[in-house]
Design a protein around this nucleic acid. Structure first.
Lengths: 249, 249
DNA sequence: ACAAAAGTGTTGTGCGTACACCCATGC
DNA sequence: GCATGGGTGTACGCACAACACTTTTGT
């Protein structure tokens, strides 16, 4: 490793910038999608609503910073976390030129530490009833939602929002919340069970109905195995209509 | 607009970082995909091969910076340019902690200004015969290629690599270069012509064969119009096999 | 016995795939 | 007249979409 102080001189003429990470943290309460937001604790925009965020330090990557923020806030490590986009408009932050790397996270609401969340002035809001957020944070949330919809049919990440054990109705309600529309029960089950990635635990969850619904687990090992032999997770749901000559003749 | 100098104090305790943009610039010479790279003109790694890049200045967004670099290098404005990913590993640059926002660009090789390109020590290499690049630039190229493959079936961006007028064989060779595999001629034509987005100019390009091939134009206006009524460009080519129970029984 | 949610199968159709031959022209 | 690349149509199979009734059990 080259001593950095030696070489730093090469770049000295260039500008340096504040680099923040902002986290779009999604949760699911069994009925609807939730977003974790906070009342900002520092100026500018003190007490306005904002995403959870912080500044990237010299000795950490942006991913490290996002993980640090998530841990401080929810007590959770090993959270599903993915870089969304880097926002760099010159005036996006009213205090100083700051670029922000947005990350989106999927967590299980009930595994997060309520005390930590509250101590940070954070709280869950329903995605459909989200107050105005500061700066460009609303745009970040919209972009994250788009990405979430793309990912949900392309990768089995929904399970990060559910408990380890879940029922098929649970899963369907989650997908319906994400795509904001209903799916046919039979189609939905077929396409999930058809992947062979759900393990039926042969135990019923009686909380949702009188009949009870079977509990399942996601078979992560099998997923990785199949992925490595060139098979991909891809649900045939919510397909958008294609441009076709006869569609608009 | 709030005077920035007033508010800057709120962030003073935080670290500031060099922010670079690196451009993965794709071109197409009629046969294979090309990448524009340069011999680095400054330390560290002087004369090593690298992507075209530069630092983000205080008064410009990262997108502005990428456009500036592209203009300086190729003489082209209004280039297809898309943010790829933000690379932030602490030691990715051997000289100093620098985060890099990677952009990928699609340009028409023959519209670029050869003189400018050469004066920057830049040159086109075949994607399949690309030398080792500095830092994490190889990873950037790989990621860009993945993204390109995703985008080519999802958005009609291939035309940025072709002249305004092109033949269907031209287009097919381009897709075959991107996906690195052959497509059935009839299928390929059907799925493109089926979109209704290609205008047959009823003029033949005689350069490629004795019979000649019809020239087409991409109907951008119609594309936007159809997009706005909820129809999407989506080619049914190079579909990856899905995880299905019976596929591995 | 009834309410409430879980679970299950079949059929049609449209789309994607596979595949081989004729066409136009320059030389 | 022949070589070269451009252009075209059909038949099959599968996968997706649509759709309604039975099961279980708590009250």
């Amino acid at each position: 490793m080259i001593k950095q102080s030696n070489q730093e001189k090469f770049y000295q003429e260039h500008d340096r910038h504040y680099v923040a990470v902002d986290c779009i943290i999604f949760g699911f309460d069994g009925n609807s999608l939730k977003l974790l937001i906070q009342k900002r604790k520092f100026e500018p925009e003190l007490n306005a609503f904002s995403l959870m965020g912080g500044f990237v330090k010299n000795e950490e990557s942006a991913m490290d910073a996002a993980n640090r923020i998530l841990l401080q806030l929810t007590g959770l490590a090993d959270v599903y976390l993915e870089q969304l986009y880097c926002f760099t408009n010159v005036n996006r932050d009213s205090a100083a030129r700051t670029i922000s790397i947005a990350y989106f996270a999927l967590i299980n609401i009930y595994q997060s530490n309520k005390l930590l969340v509250e101590n940070h002035g954070a709280f869950w809001v329903d995605l459909n009833h989200c107050p105005k957020l500061i700066f460009d944070h609303d745009a970040m949330v919209q972009l994250a939602l788009q990405r979430l919809r793309l990912k949900f049919i392309t990768e089995p990440i929904a399970f990060n929002l559910l408990s380890n054990e879940f029922t098929l109705p649970n899963l369907q309600i989650l997908y319906e919340a994400v795509y904001n529309r209903a799916f046919d029960k039979r189609l939905f089950r077929r396409c999930f069970l058809g992947t062979g990635l759900l393990i039926n635990l042969n135990v019923k969850d009686m909380s949702g109905s009188k009949k009870g619904a079977f509990l399942y687990q996601f078979d992560h090992a099998k997923y990785v195995q199949l992925y490595n032999i060139g098979l991909y997770f891809n649900l045939p749901i919510d397909k958008q209509p294609r441009m076709k000559v006869d569609k608009f003749k």
